[in-house]
Design a protein around this nucleic acid. Structure first.
Lengths: 109, 109
DNA sequence: TTCAGCTATTCGGCGTTGCTAGGTACTGGT
DNA sequence: ACCAGTACCTAGCAACGCCGAATAGCTGAA
């Protein structure tokens, strides 16, 4: 992909990460690897870490430092109540946008 | 809506406008009004004009100045071949992203 | 023992994007 | 003369994701 997906990720990447965390707690390195696996080949590591800091500061996640056998300690993030609430809002907004886009795509044929 | 949708629009608004233009030529003021009508209540006029300038400079649209009875002349934009090609790419990227989000949403239940 | 390579996180500077807030200009009605 | 509606443009700002580099711990091969 490239620039197109980069710009589209603005605003959605946050929701993606929150959605991941809604399923299970996770840490940055793990999330990055998983996203790459899912086809988000060009997501920068630094982007994820910065995002995690942001959502932590906004109080959407809880953090726990967990030692790792294979390297430095991990910062494991888990979605809290406020985070779940915010994720709901995200899905609402996403649905709105996706709906409009869907309509436009139909109309354009 | 608010900040959430603003961030999500980054990258998608361009596609939205191109999709509109793929159906029919249009000018800025008209596009803004139509978007507001479609529920994008907080899209700023300046945003659309700036976007139109950008896609013109990238050669995705052709422009024609058309006199108006009710004000200054309109700048009517129409999608050209390069624009259609780019719009295809946009839809591909969008589909990818929407697919991943859909999966995440399912999984999160 | 050393050094490469994987794990794991952090930081500063950059480009793109949308918003804010203001301005310009033309027309028609009061 | 004035104001509302039409139509466009601009400068400065904030947020986000990317790039490049640095730091730090652990393991296994040379």
């Amino acid at each position: 992909m490239g620039k197109l997906v980069t710009e589209m990720l603005k605003g959605t990447l946050e929701g993606i990460v929150l959605a991941i965390l809604s399923g299970r707690p996770a840490y940055g390195y793990e999330i990055t690897a998983w996203l790459r696996d899912q086809g988000f080949s060009d997501i920068a590591e630094g982007t994820i870490y910065a995002l995690l800091v942001r959502i932590e500061q906004r109080g959407l996640v809880d953090v726990e430092k967990v030692p790792s056998e294979k390297g430095p300690p991990r910062k494991v993030y888990s979605l809290n109540a406020q985070g779940r609430e915010y994720l709901e809002e995200f899905w609402t907004t996403w649905s709105f946008l996706a709906g409009r886009l869907e309509q436009l795509r139909e109309g354009g044929k």
